[in-house]
């Protein structure tokens, strides 16, 4: 089983990305994924892409990074969390085995 590596991005790499990381770990492990998150600022995305399967961001990130991006506030507002998790899973596609 491969670990799912998620880069969680917000404006500070600290504030909202901590909340989102915990949520992703909780929700994805419930669905049987092994998850590893890394947090960074929007301006540091390019230098943190090594080995990353997907980016989940609460703030605008640069385009054309070569890695799928899910931009969502669902984990902060509590509205549409399940849909956001579905989006993350669908964007990972077949690369990562459950």
């Amino acid at each position: 089983m491969k670990k799912l590596k998620i880069l969680v991005v917000c404006g500070t790499g600290i504030a909202t990305s901590t909340v989102v990381s915990r949520k992703l770990e909780e929700k994805l492990s419930e669905r049987g994924y092994e998850v590893e998150t890394r947090q960074c600022k929007a301006s540091e995305v390019e230098s943190n892409l090594e080995g990353i399967d997907i980016i989940v961001a609460t703030t605008p990130v640069p385009e054309n990074l070569g890695v799928p991006v899910v931009r969502t506030l669902a984990f902060l507002t509590g509205v549409g969390e399940d849909e956001a998790i579905e989006e993350v899973i669908s964007k990972i596609g077949g690369d990562v085995q459950k």
Binding site: V9, C10, G11, A15, T58, P60, V79
Partner: peptide, 15 residues
């Protein structure tokens, strides 16, 4: 829903 302004500071003009 009131959130942290950290969700906006990734904006290129802000940076």
């Amino acid at each position: 829903i009131g959130l942290d302004s950290a969700i906006a500071v990734g904006d290129p003009a802000a940076i």
